[in-house]
Design a binder for these strands. Structure first.
Length: 745
DNA sequence: CCAGGACACGTTTTT
DNA sequence: CGTGTCCTGG
């Protein structure tokens, strides 16, 4: 059998990883080093050379997008080259999915032993927050003192750490005591209502294996080969689950990059990748350091920055490509100047024959996008913002899905509450509260409670009528869509419930957009094919659930990225976090200033600072051809002017990689402009400070080394006072007044 | 029900 | 400054 296609076109390190005889393997894959390719070829190698049945392989990712890509590329590779068609068919029996998707599947298969209802509901973070709010109300907690959001994140981080409430020691700490109280009550509601949040999926999947030796043994035999992508992003419970599942016999291939670990703040443990070789015995480590994405100078800059981190597993990117253009650094006066500069550079780049969609503008925080958008809008440049609200999280979509969920299961209280008065049908909060109360008394669902309150005439005639209309509507839809296809079903539901009209009539462009999204949902239903799911169905599952149920489950676990509106040729705007995994010919990193990047909140904790540095490394390595870094000397944040210095990360870039962009015209900042922006500073006026010093804004001065210039900013007081001077020949500089020895002109 | 005002808040985000 | 949330009065 000719398997050369599996190793052709790979470099030495890649070949070593693909053909490794070792059981456990850690693949440290630098940015742009062909990671997915290696992973896919490794799986194909196992199947074709090691004769591992696809049935025995599990491949785990973090996002559905990654899972889909993995399966797609694997099928492409195998379809073209596998002669044994039996194996091709079998490749579908491999499990490829997200941690959550696979956990969900385990819970679905073993619902009985887990004491879950067969049709347990998945709570997304929105549902979860509503529930936490209700718990706080029930416990009569002051919402201002104990914000439900905080409680929610407490619960989630406890679950990420594998902590059940009964094992948490609150001690005498009133914060911990209250949080624990909420957690405990929340969990009780979830248990009795058959509700499972995202963290619970992982926690239950872990407990399932831990507490049931026979089930564990079954899966250990079934999956002797496990591959995990983005291993540096695993959290405590995911790592624990993997260790249990692998046991002493399973072979784990972990692919990741400790230098790209940027999700510590949501529970990811970089330690997991660092301790892999200790916990998974006799593993071999392969480093993929050859980069196929960026020019030499971009990589040199990236390496220069990341080498300032301690405790790295060690890796240095290299390329056969030439140096390329140096990085550019632009010191803007303020965020508007920065945006203007970026837009002009974009226009220039496009004039040189490049497309808009080869460009990305990356920033640390979402708030930065507004000014950039305005500048793009002014010049009529199409742009797309990544990572806004996700499709299945949108209000109108959640409403539509709630109707569908009610059709499947009348007793779905979360869905019931959501749509009983959406669109408005005269059922107010008081009526709903009564229904809720009665349900609690009788220990029944909201649906049953509502039905009985109508039947037994407990409600006022008016409320009763309205509630009955709602109950009838749902029943009617149930009957009418019995024979319908999924998309017909969705279409009928959104139209006949009045949801479509309701959203369409919302004022402004919002109505239009929401109506379009609802139509898009129908399209998504039409396109839905359970076989496309990254997690496949197989014989172990007793019987296939109805299509609608499968669709709803997949909607709960998938952001629905495909449904986002995409422009053809647009500049891409996104945070540095959402840029991970992507690449662009031309990258702008904006707002690279102290206090913004690294963010103020991370600056004094060394570990968090290192994570910021990794984020910077991620940003730099997105660029293929040209990287431009910019920062603003003045930036308006939260309504006040901030004077930030260039980020320490810029100083970590070797100086021969980067060239500073000079202003095209000197005295770019007309003094009137500056004065204007200083008209309304609050009491501690900067102008006053300036006057204290004997200098004034706009003052022409001369400096022994830098020549002539004009004062544009003041900062600090007395001995620490610094002034910013825009020099005719040297550009703008901050100087400590005490030492600068300026001469007034 | 909804418009409008007071008020709080202000990294990063997937499932 | 800007946005989102909550509350109130019509």
């Amino acid at each position: 059998m000719d398997v050369s296609y599996l190793l052709d076109d790979l470099n030495d390190a890649q070949r070593e990883a693909v053909s490794a005889p070792a059981c456990n393997q850690l693949i440290l894959a630098g940015a742009g080093s062909g990671k997915t390719r290696v992973l896919v070829h490794r799986i194909a190698w196992l199947i074709q050379v090691e004769h591992v049945s696809p049935h025995s392989i599990m491949s785990v990712t973090f996002t559905n997008k990654a899972a889909r890509e993995m399966r797609g590329r694997l099928e492409d590779l195998l379809d073209g080259n596998l002669l044994d068609s039996n194996l091709v068919g079998n490749s579908r029996s491999m499990w490829v999915g997200t941690f959550h998707g696979i956990a969900h599947r385990l819970l679905k298969a073993h619902w009985k032993i887990l004491n879950l209802p067969q049709n347990f509901q998945i709570l997304d973070s929105d549902d979860q927050l509503r529930l936490v709010k209700r718990v706080c109300q029930t416990l009569k907690l002051d919402e201002t003192k104990w914000p439900p959001r905080q409680a929610q994140s407490y619960i989630n981080s406890q679950k990420d750490e594998g902590q059940r409430p009964q094992y948490i020691q609150a001690g005498g700490d009133p914060y911990a005591v209250t949080m624990l109280q909420i957690y405990t009550a929340y969990e009780e509601i979830c248990r009795s209502g058959g509700l499972v949040d995202f963290g619970e999926l992982l926690l239950r999947a872990h407990e399932l294996l831990l507490n049931n030796p026979d089930i564990l043994q079954h899966y250990q035999r079934r999956f002797p080969f496990i591959l995990v992508d983005e291993f540096q992003d695993t959290n405590t419970i995911q790592y624990a689950w993997l260790r249990v599942l692998a046991g002493n016999t399973g072979c784990v291939t972990a692919v990741g990059d400790d230098d790209q670990s940027i999700y510590g703040w949501r529970g990811a443990k970089i330690e997991n990748i660092q301790r892999f070789t200790d916990d998974f015995k006799q593993s071999q480590t392969v480093r993929l350091e050859q980069n196929y994405r960026s020019t030499g100078l971009i990589l040199k800059a990236a390496n220069g920055v990341i080498q300032n981190n301690f405790g790295r597993l060690g890796k240095e990117l290299r390329t056969d490509a030439g140096d390329g253009e140096p990085l550019s650094l632009y010191a803007a006066f303020n965020e508007h100047d920065e945006a203007r500069f970026i837009v002009e550079s974009i226009q220039q780049w496009v004039k040189e024959g490049n497309r808009y969609d080869s460009i990305a503008i990356l920033y640390r925080s979402n708030a930065q996008s507004r000014v950039l958008e305005e500048a793009l809008l002014r010049e009529n440049i199409a742009y797309r913002i990544y990572g806004g609200q996700r499709f299945y999280d949108r209000l109108e979509i959640k409403n539509a899905l709630s109707y569908l969920r009610l059709l499947v299961n009348n007793n779905d209280d979360t869905a019931f509450e959501r749509v009983i008065n959406t669109p408005t049908r005269g059922i107010g909060g008081k009526t709903v509260e009564q229904i809720r109360l009665f349900a609690r008394q009788e220990g029944c669902s909201l649906w049953d409670s509502a039905q009985r309150m109508v039947d037994e005439k407990i409600l006022t005639p008016r409320a009763s009528g309205a509630v009955n209309v709602f109950l009838q509507l749902i029943r009617q839809l149930q009957v009418q869509t019995l024979e319908s296809s999924l998309d017909e079903q969705a279409d009928k539901v959104i139209k006949q419930s009045g949801l479509y009209e309701f959203h369409k009539n919302e004022k402004g462009e919002k109505g239009q957009a929401r109506a379009e999204n609802l139509e898009e949902l129908v399209n998504a239903c039409r396109a839905f094919n359970p076989n496309d799911l990254a997690t496949q169905t197989d014989q172990e599952q007793q019987e296939d659930a109805p299509l609608l149920v499968q669709f709803l489950d997949s909607a709960s676990l998938d952001a629905g990225e495909g449904q986002a509106d995409e422009f053809d040729d647009a500049v891409q705007l996104m945070t540095l976090h959402s840029a991970k995994g992507l690449e662009f010919s031309r990258v702008f990193m904006a707002g690279v200033e102290e206090n913004l990047f690294p963010h103020r909140m991370s600056a004094d904790d060394p570990e968090r600072l290192e994570e910021e540095r990794r984020l910077c490394y991620v940003g730099i390595t997105r660029a293929m051809v040209k990287l431009t870094i910019s920062y603003a000397e003045t930036r308006r944040m939260h309504g006040t002017e901030n004077f930030n210095r260039v980020s320490r990360f810029v100083k970590e870039i070797p100086s021969d990689c980067i060239s500073e962009v000079r202003l095209k015209t000197q005295i770019q900042r007309p003094l009137g402009y500056n004065k204007q922006s200083y008209k309304k500073p609050s009491n501690a006026s900067l102008q006053e400070k300036g006057e204290d010093s004997g200098y004034y804004l706009g003052q022409k001065v001369t400096h022994a080394m830098f020549g002539d210039g004009a004062i544009t900013h003041f900062e600090g007081q007395e001995n620490n006072m610094r002034v910013q001077v825009n020099f005719v020949n040297e550009g703008s500089k901050w100087l400590v007044l005490q030492y600068a020895n300026l001469q007034a002109l």
